[in-house]
Amino acid sequence: MVKNMNAEKKKTENVAECGLENIRMKTQNLSVFYNNDQALHDINLDIACNKVTALIGPSGCGKSTFMRCLNRMNDYVEGCRVTGKVRLDGFNIYKDNVDTILLRQKVGMVFQKPNPFPKSIYENVAYGPKIHHLIENKDELDALVEKTLKRVGLWDEVADRLSAPGTSLSGGQQQRLCIARAIATKPEVVLMDEPCSALDPIATARIEELIAELEQKFTIVIITHSMQQAERVSDHTAFFHMGHIIEAGDTQKIFNDPEHQKTKDYIGGKFG
């Protein structure tokens, strides 16, 4: 309890002095094992406050695994073991006394595969605010749902069928619905695992606008396989390869003047 309060205090301090290079999340010697296979090796990465951090790297290199460590979704994966530290506002979220429920409200997540609830579209978006008591009454909730759906560019498509099940939408619409669902809960850190993988260029542009908009207030981590997208939306980039971070730093630097040959090859499309 005391520690939680300390964390609160520390957080407010952090937010207060949240400068350009302030660190919101930080991993220290983070290793992840699936049964006995090591998927991540001693990852040290800082995630800056109110910035977009892009994670890039070939398929199977451990990006999703890393992202799941940031809100402890790995707890749900059978056989998964995490060592090392992940700090949110300086506080190690892998300590035993952490309330993972509160953590996950603060650190929201959009999954790689769209997974809307088979409830109505409205309920999908309204669920998070409801369980966290973020709204006072029905009107407020209606307004929040509408606003959120507009932000992800889905409102025009679903306005007349809010009571249809979320699973009845197309793949790309489901993906946007899941983004809406995640940001309706008002998280402070948003983790997005390939949010645009099933979207057309127009919807992608909308999501990228949204990311730019969210960046004002939130810290964003995004996984993408599109180098152009990483370059467009992110401030920092980390390049993963076989469970190691090869290079991390300023996006401009990584894309224009990478230090490692592997990074250069990957960005240049030589492998991956």
């Binding site: 809100n71 979704m73 749900y76 429920i101 509160l102 953590l103 996950r104 409200q105 929201g108 997540m109 999954f111 997974n115 809307p116 609830f117 088979p118 669920y127 998070g128 369980i131 966290h132 899941c178 669902r181 995640a182 809960t185």
Partner: peptide, 9 residues
């Protein structure tokens, strides 16, 4: 679906 709900807190 369980993950989706859990990730919302």
């Amino acid at each position: 679906i369980r993950y989706a709900a859990a990730a919302l807190g």
